[in-house]
Nucleic acid binder design. Structure first.
Lengths: 114, 114
DNA sequence: CACCGCTATATCCTGCCGTGCATAACGAAA
DNA sequence: TTTCGTTATGCACGGCAGGATATAGCGGTG
């Protein structure tokens, strides 16, 4: 039996999601593959979706988190900027702190379950 | 501009959601109205959905969180059990602790936004 | 200078979640 | 014993998020 607390923390800017778990994961994939399309393939999502996530991130923050360019060798590509890495790290730190806290509560709720 | 961190914590039991923010709110509404259907109306959700949420809760936990009965005066009704109140309170405490923690991180992320 | 893989964007299509609706059973009260 | 509002459950419809597909433009490299 897999009993656990599923957490989700999203940084909202008005009505759109500036940052969240999916976007953090996407930054990882872009960093390791060097392109949005390869990252999308790696994560099993459509290029459309990946591009929309990147676009939303870049629009929400002061500095872009991903720098991308068409053309060039093997067709340009994309890279995670300094700001991107910084924001991702802050987010991950928050995620970890939330996780630790949730785990403290987990047992007291879990032992009420079947 | 409404910038904030949206949090969601769900207690999972295998594949179904044993408890979460919607179920906590539903318990409140059942407590104040005395029936599942009135609670659903109050929250603007379908009776079907409300009933499914109650059913999932009751199946996941050792003791039922809601006791319900058909028939009777004005058609039976439903009430939140002692276990229901206890679990809801534990959950709310966790939610509050997570909220406080997230607020600490909020500013360091928020001031990167537009 | 043609090729290639990528970015960028629009349009169509689909699967899923939840609502709406319909129905049956229940049991206290009048 | 009739009435009434509820519990309990199934089924068909609709909205919408995301996938699939199509197309155009870009610019190093061979």
């Amino acid at each position: 039996m897999a009993n656990y607390i599923k957490l989700r923390a999203r940084l909202m800017r008005d009505d759109d999601i500036a940052f969240g778990p999916g976007k953090a994961q996407l930054l990882d994939a872009i960093e390791s593959t060097g392109s949005i399309s390869a990252a999308a393939r790696e994560l099993g999502m459509s290029y459309r979706r990946a591009w929309l996530l990147v676009d939303t991130m870049n629009r929400c923050f002061r500095e872009p988190l991903v720098h991308s360019a068409p053309g060039g060798k093997h067709g340009g590509g994309a890279e995670v900027t300094e700001a991107g890495r910084r924001i991702r790290q802050r987010y991950r730190e928050m995620e970890q702190a939330l996780r630790d806290l949730a785990d403290d509560f987990e047992k007291s709720l879990e032992n009420e379950l079947n």
